[in-house]
């Protein structure tokens, strides 16, 4: 699913974006508020949905190889988190839609979870 499609189905606002990435393809997503969980099982090039807005989300994304993070339920991070994301070249989005529904919308639109990808 193209990033611009994700932005439109979640009606998301772009907080910062890496140049020319709107057209990039994202095939998998995960929703988590526990960063250790993200570090434990997330594969590179995943979209991360989270309700956590600390700078550690950006560090987690950087270390786990996550390029796009979407904050759910309208939670906007502080400027320092956004600045850090710009520096680390990580795209940040925010949607007003809550976590469960955000995941559902993306799933319905064709994004897959890991258990299905591993079956393929």
């Amino acid at each position: 699913m193209k990033l611009d499609k994700i932005i439109s189905v979640l009606d998301a606002e772009i907080l910062c974006i890496v140049k020319n990435k709107l057209n990039s393809d994202i095939t998998k997503a995960c929703g988590a508020d526990l960063m250790s969980d993200v570090l434990a099982f997330v594969q590179p090039d995943t979209l991360l949905l989270t309700g956590l807005t600390t700078p550690q989300v950006v560090y987690t994304a950087e270390n786990a190889g996550v390029n796009v993070v979407c904050f759910v339920r309208g939670k906007k991070p502080h400027k320092e988190t956004v600045d850090l994301a710009k520096e680390k070249k990580i795209t940040l989005l925010v949607t007003k839609i809550p976590m469960f529904e955000s995941c559902g919308i993306l799933y319905k639109n064709g994004l897959m979870g890991y258990s299905e990808i591993s079956k393929q």
């Binding site: 508020d33 526990l34 960063m35 250790s36 969980d37 570090l39 434990a40 956590l52 550690q56 987690t60």
Partner: peptide
């Protein structure tokens, strides 16, 4: 609340 401290740290390092 910061997304850590759920007893995953050391197992993650080991993995």
């Amino acid at each position: 609340e910061l997304g850590f401290g759920a007893g995953m740290g050391l197992p993650n390092i080991k993995n």
